[in-house]
């Protein structure tokens, strides 16, 4: 099952390496990881997506807790939350199909952020499903390159 962890860590060099090293040495799989500083410059937040069964997931959170630089872990898998991911997608496009692509871009409320002679770069923001769907529709035109940020999440409400 896919699960989402929101982890507060010390904003120090090497912390990402500690987390990554823990996952690799214990054989856990990271689906995606996004890191950024919080409003407190000493603290960063990691949004980590993993695929794990109940027992493995319990181990993952417990083992993460053992890292001295990990301050707080929240399992937000079943919380009401907003998930967002951003993707930049370079699609081959020339005058013959550019308007078709523009239509798809419009439907997804995506943005064209760069236009070249034979390609365009599209920026899509949304949850994972939306980005996957856009990628599906764009594929026939020829995807040259995709860069995805990994998911960031925030629990809804006043929490």
């Amino acid at each position: 099952m896919k699960r989402t962890l929101s982890v507060l860590v010390n904003n120090r060099s090497g912390v990402l390496a500690r987390v990554a090293s823990l996952f690799s040495r214990r054989g856990y799989n990271i689906e995606s990881i996004a890191v950024g500083v919080t409003d407190d410059p000493e603290v960063s937040r990691m949004t980590i997506q993993v695929i794990a069964d109940e027992a493995t997931f319990e181990q993952i959170t417990k083992q993460l807790h053992k890292l001295i630089d990990v301050i707080k872990i929240s399992d937000i898998t079943s919380d009401e939350r907003v998930d967002r991911e951003l993707a930049l997608i370079r699609i081959s496009a020339d005058s013959s199909n550019r308007s078709d692509i523009l239509q798809v871009v419009g439907i997804f409320r995506a943005k064209i952020v760069d236009v070249a002679e034979k390609s365009i770069i599209v920026e899509v923001t949304g949850d994972e499903g939306k980005i996957d769907a856009f990628v599906q529709l764009a594929r026939p035109y020829g995807i040259i390159e995709i860069v995805r940020t990994g998911k960031v999440s925030m629990v809804r409400g006043s929490k």
Binding site: G14, A17, R18, S21, L22, R25, I68
Partner: peptide, 14 residues
């Protein structure tokens, strides 16, 4: 050495 000993120490510092 901090990289090397990351998985075999409780914690380490550079």
């Amino acid at each position: 050495i901090t990289g090397i000993t990351m998985p075999i120490t409780k914690h380490n510092y550079l």
